[in-house]
């Protein structure tokens, strides 16, 4: 039993399961999945689809947080990426041309990568605190997005582009497939190469990493660049789903949701050990929360109150000072033991 509860993915998974079950009680048909027109439909599929952008952004954020950093600019990058892609597509004579869409998507992703690279340079080369360094792009980025769209919402009518965030492929939403592929590739990249270990080393102990000869700067720049690309893909999905680039609202507050997803997933904000699977679970918890509130008829804006409660609980439980002060009178410490050997092994091989 202890091996199960001690696993680092136990709590985020448990929270997710409880939330899903609660939905099932309220809405009996919640788990039903139907096939219509060769597409899968159902609340669970909706959660996956609507949660796709957040899963991607949180994925990038996880890697940055593993190095002991943070990226506040992801929401702005989401807006910029969608804006650029839609701007390029709307300028084409045939918006439905696959080649044109591919070029637009490629350029949007390149720009996202450049923005992430810029953040990385500020953190690793200029040596500015990550919160401050990425704040610059967070402030300016939304302006850049609106600059691209000239302040208007750009509507596109492009079936190939629509596929990215709203289409289906092999009966599944295309976005979900993209997320699955990106998560799998990232998992392979960090766990099959030495990348994950070296990132964890940097976040776990920067000075020791320097003395062991890890070239931290490059890896940190790489992490921020990757985070930028993830936010870029998420931006494509969001704008594709509604066939509109909205420089003002696309990805608004997404950085905060992403950080939240990472923390709920069990990766500490201080850096070091990270878990991609946990982050995916964390993002799904947030999306399920939003969906649940939506289906119960509470105004969606009120979701924020629940999020605040979740952030507070998760952070307080993670805080050693809180545990020491509140659980002081308990006979035994309530803290779960550090990841068991079995759990660590799963992480290494995951």
């Amino acid at each position: 039993m202890k091996a199960v509860t001690g696993h680092r993915l136990f709590w985020p998974a448990a929270v997710l399961v409880v939330m899903l079950l609660a939905n099932l009680v309220v809405t009996p048909g919640f788990f039903s999945i139907q096939v219509r027109n060769g597409h899968l439909y159902g609340s669970l599929i909706d959660i996956l689809l609507l949660g796709s952008p957040l899963m991607l952004v949180a994925l990038g954020m996880t890697v940055v947080i593993a190095t002991g950093g943070i990226d506040l600019s992801v929401g702005a990058v989401v807006a910029i990426s969608g804006a650029l892609a839609c701007y390029l597509i709307s300028g084409q004579e045939d918006q439905g041309a696959v080649s044109g869409v591919l070029v637009a998507v490629a350029l949007a992703l390149v720009l996202s990568a450049v923005l992430g690279f810029w953040n990385g340079l500020f953190v690793a080369r200029v040596g500015i605190q990550p919160i401050i360094a990425t704040l610059i792009l967070m402030v300016a980025g939304r302006g850049v997005a609106q600059l691209i769209t000239s302040g208007k919402n750009i509507n596109v009518n492009s079936p190939p582009y629509k596929l990215i965030g709203g289409g289906y492929w092999l009966t599944l939403p295309f976005a979900v497939i993209v997320v699955a592929v990106v998560v799998a590739l990232t998992g392979l990249a960090v766990r099959r190469t030495a990348l994950g270990m070296l990132l964890e080393a940097i976040g776990g102990n920067a000075e020791a990493s320097r003395l062991v000869g890890i070239r931290s700067r490059r890896l940190i720049v790489l992490a921020y660049t990757f985070c930028g690309v993830c936010a870029g893909i998420a931006g494509l999905m969001i704008s594709s789903n509604i066939s509109t680039a909205d420089g003002n609202n696309a990805g608004l507050w997404m950085e905060l949701d992403a950080i939240l997803a990472v923390v709920i997933g069990g990766t500490a904000l201080t850096g070091g050990r990270f878990t991609l699977a946990g982050t995916v679970l964390g993002a799904l918890v947030i999306q399920t929360l939003s969906t649940t509130i939506y289906t119960t008829g509470v105004p969606p804006q009120v979701t924020l109150v629940f999020k605040a409660v979740v952030v507070a609980i998760v952070c307080l439980i993670q805080s050693p000072a809180f545990r020491a002060k509140v659980f002081r009178r308990r006979a035994r410490p309530a803290a779960p033991p550090p990841a068991s050997p079995a759990a660590a092994d799963v992480e290494v091989n995951a």
């Binding site: 976040g203 020791a208 990493s209 660590a344 290494v348």
Partner: peptide, 28 residues
């Protein structure tokens, strides 16, 4: 504070220097 990376496992700590020298693209 300067040697061990306590978050990592014993095995990871042992291969860290060699892996750092190899670079992340050439994992053992």
């Amino acid at each position: 504070s300067e040697g061990l990376i306590e978050d990592l496992t014993v095995g990871e700590n042992i291969v860290l220097a060699l892996q750092a020298a190899n670079g992340w693209l050439r994992p053992l």
